[in-house]
């Protein structure tokens, strides 16, 4: 690898170190109790991850996020694809989506809690709602953009309408769908934390707010780092999967937008 290539690969790492340095300096300069230095926050990470209770809480969060995300993907992709190909389905769901899309799903949390309690069901439902819309939207756009002649070619091969949906519309729209899923993944993390901040019972968001209540600021910042790292790892893993699935559609020299 050339020096330039090495630099390019490591550039996200430099960005990370740079941010931590700015944090360190700013914290030392401000010198307030509620703003620990980057080093203090990093030092607090092992004690959180070493604590069985905290670790179980974080794993619980991930489990809810995964369930919400998988349900949303399973629901949103077929709906979006149908909307893109069948006009009646689009005319029914599109106005609904336009209304629901801008509403912050976390704002529904109090009502959902009222009806379904503060347990897993409410939180998973909020994650599901938060994640679904961008995936539906992208699947809809992707499916709408599928070349008519490609479908005609399939029909001439004797493929039935459901077969064309599964074997032509789905793969042809996959790059667009996966773009939606990537947005969905990050939104899942956001709604997961938000839901746990509102329904404080367990989870990563709960640890964060509990330590804030108890003025354990190094733990607060350590949790922010942990949650941030989770986001980066999930996103990078997803990008790896996405690229392996849609390499055929990628332009060659692309600027990397994730750690892969």
């Amino acid at each position: 690898m050339t020096a330039r290539g090495v630099l390019k690969t490591l550039s996200p790492l430099f960005a990370c170190i740079g941010l931590l340095c700015v944090w360190q300096v700013a914290s030392l300069r401000l010198d307030t109790e509620s703003f620990p230095t980057a080093l203090e926050a990093i030092k607090a990470i092992p004690s959180i991850l070493g604590d069985k209770g905290s670790l179980l809480n974080i794993l619980d969060s991930i489990r809810r996020m995964a369930i919400g995300l998988v349900l949303a993907v399973m629901f949103s992709i077929p709906l979006g694809l149908l909307m893109g190909r069948i006009k009646a389905v689009a005319s029914f769901f599109n106005p609904l989506m336009m209304i629901i899309y801008p509403v912050p799903k976390a704002a529904l949390m109090p009502i959902i809690m009222l009806w379904m309690g503060v347990g897993d069901v409410s939180k998973i439902l909020v994650i599901f709602l938060g994640v679904s819309l961008p995936i539906i939207y992208h699947a809809f756009q992707g499916s709408k953009a599928v070349e008519e002649k490609m479908l005609w070619s399939g029909a001439a091969m004797g493929m039935s309408a459901p077969m064309r949906m599964l074997r032509i519309v789905l793969p042809a729209a996959l790059p667009e769908i996966l773009t939606g899923c990537r947005t969905g993944l990050v939104l899942a993390l956001i709604t997961m934390i938000t839901s746990e901040m509102i329904a404080r019972q367990s989870g990563a968001g709960n640890i964060l707010f509990n330590s804030l209540d108890m003025a354990q600021y190094d733990t607060v910042f350590a949790m922010i780092l942990i949650i941030g790292a989770m986001g980066i790892v999930f996103d990078a893993a997803f990008e790896k999967l996405r690229l392996s699935l849609v390499r055929w559609s990628q332009p060659r020299d692309d600027m990397p937008l994730s750690f892969t």
Binding site: E147, K149, M150, W152, I168, P171, A172, W248, S249
Partner: peptide
């Protein structure tokens, strides 16, 4: 077709 309409995947 003029547009080829190949399956790009």
């Amino acid at each position: 077709f003029q547009e080829f309409a190949l399956f790009p995947w």
